[in-house]
């Protein structure tokens, strides 16, 4: 058994197989092994402006949170009349609703088979429940200290930003959890407002800005990218303006944050892409490319 390979060692070449006995140790590889090494086969080349465009989703969401907090502050201070906010919100919602159907010519509505009656019903449910619960909301957190409420709201809004669906395909993304956290935060903040009408309008506004506005944004981004950029810029500037009216330092910091997210981060992403060194080879885990779901059931 052992004597036979010794005679023709020179002729015997190493083969990467397990089904034949070879005159080599188990951990032996020869020079051809590294020939199959590949580098960075999945690395993507990014265009700077494309990345900046994609980062606008994050900017939008940051601005939404900022606008919400600013509006809440105005309401809490009594500078903003709830009727005015309600009217503005209603008007912008109607405009948005019309735009939502106009942008893609009603194709999305046909695809989802959602009737206008269902929309109306949803709207009625929102309004009724929020209005019905607003007195409860008013007294809900009376005994809890304001600091606790603020801390809770901050955590919830941060969670909203973390779990928001920015288009990435990751496990952490959960648009349901993100929306729920935002609503929780808005209910917490609304319970600090002076009257139950304020609370009602605050929660309605939260629905508009956290639930409805991202839907419109998504559609805008997909159909009319140019107008989306314009809307984003406008929204960012209005948020900055609102913040500026409360605190200049905060506005400057927020502007820096937005700038770094939309300009600096893409730049760094592209720079750091050069240092990327992923190696691939026959030692990789097996990857099933074919769709095997038909075997499963």
């Amino acid at each position: 058994m052992y004597a036979q390979p010794v005679t023709n060692t020179k002729e015997a070449r190493w083969q990467k197989i397990l089904y034949e006995r070879q005159p080599f140790p188990d951990n032996y590889v020869d020079r051809r092994f590294l020939e199959e090494l590949r580098k960075n086969i999945y690395a993507r080349k990014y265009q700077y402006w494309a990345v900046v465009f994609e980062s606008s989703v994050v900017v939008q969401q940051l601005c939404s949170v900022c606008v919400f907090v600013v509006i809440w502050w105005y309401m809490d201070e009594g500078l903003l009349a709830p009727h005015w906010l309600f009217g503005t919100g209603l008007a912008s919602s109607l405009i948005g609703y019309v735009l939502f159907d106009l942008i893609d010519g009603g194709e999305g509505r046909k695809k989802s088979r959602r009737t206008r009656w269902a929309d109306l019903k949803s709207a009625l449910v929102f309004i009724t429940f929020t209005y019905g619960f607003s007195p409860v909301l008013k007294t809900l957190t009376e005994s809890v200290s304001t600091d606790t409420i603020y801390a809770m709201s901050v955590f919830m809004l941060l969670g909203h930003l973390i779990f928001f669906d920015y288009g990435a395909n990751a496990a952490i993304v959960s648009s349901t959890l993100s929306l729920n956290m935002a609503i929780f935060a808005s209910v917490c903040l609304a319970s600090r407002l002076p009257r139950s009408l304020h609370a009602f309008i605050m929660v309605t506004f939260a629905i508009q800005i956290f639930a409805l506005w991202p839907m419109l944004q998504k559609k805008l981004k997909a159909c009319t990218p140019r107008s989306y950029v314009g809307v984003t810029l406008l929204f960012a500037f209005s948020a900055l303006g609102g913040l500026l009216s409360i605190s200049a330092v905060g506005a400057i910091l927020f502007a820096l944050l937005l700038l770094s997210i939309s300009c600096l981060c893409p730049f760094y992403l592209i720079r750091l892409q050069l240092f990327k060194e992923n190696i691939h080879g026959p030692w990789d885990e097996a990857e099933i490319k074919e769709d095997l779901s038909r075997f499963l059931s």
């Binding site: 019903k121 949803s122 449910v125 929102f126 429940f129 929020t130 619960f133 409860v136 909301l137 809900l140 957190t141 809890v144 349901t176 929306l179 729920n180 609503i183 929780f184 209910v187 917490c188 929660v203 629905i207 639930a211």
Partner: peptide
Amino acid sequence: YDLDQLFIGTLLFTILVF
């Protein structure tokens, strides 16, 4: 979930928690 389901659920959740 639908949007309205989510909203009402979270509203109730908040109230119950407090």
